[in-house]
């Protein structure tokens, strides 16, 4: 076993964005991005979880994977929503979490904000472009 290396990150808060552009189940990307988002909560970083293009299908209501025998991970988004609520309520913690859907991607797929398993901010592309440009780290999968 190699020696563990750790960097000193105390007191640094950055803006992380997680970009989801792929549909669930056809590929595994969505599931593993979720794992990355959840880990980052422990570091008390700002996080914007963004759904663009086919990524919006990840949070569509009514997913039932029983017949394809795969793990239904849409429920995990509920945990992200809870983390977000914790961050919003805790005034001592400097951590802002946002869950954002791009309006154009949503509408192109015949969906509306009511179709999602979590509460989302729906932003038009021009506004989302501004939010994206403000980030320190963008992780896409």
């Amino acid at each position: 076993m190699s020696e563990e290396i750790e960097f000193d990150t105390a007191g640094i808060t950055k803006k992380f964005m997680y970009v989801n552009r792929k549909a669930p189940y056809g590929t595994i990307y969505a599931l593993e991005v979720l794992e990355a988002v959840l880990i980052s909560a422990a570091f008390e970083q700002h996080a914007a979880i963004v759904f663009i293009d086919d990524g919006v299908y990840q949070i569509k209501k009514g997913q039932d994977t029983a017949a394809i025998n795969m793990k239904n991970f849409s429920k995990t988004y509920g945990i992200i929503e809870m983390e977000k609520e914790d961050a919003d309520e805790d005034e001592d913690m400097d951590m802002v979490w946002r869950i954002i859907v791009e309006k154009e991607s949503m509408e192109a797929r015949g969906l509306s904000a009511d179709d999602f398993v979590v509460d989302v901010e729906v932003l038009p592309s021009a506004e989302l472009a501004k939010v994206m440009a403000e980030q320190d780290v963008v992780i896409s999968g």
């Binding site: 190699s2 960097f7 896409s140």
Partner: peptide, 24 residues
């Protein structure tokens, strides 16, 4: 040359580095 560790090490380098570049 490789070592196995947790996903926290990704967040950590994202915080510590000036730039994180993703290849996929």
């Amino acid at each position: 040359g490789f070592r196995i560790s947790g996903l926290g090490q990704l967040t950590e380098v994202g915080i510590a580095a000036d730039r994180l570049v993703v290849f996929g």
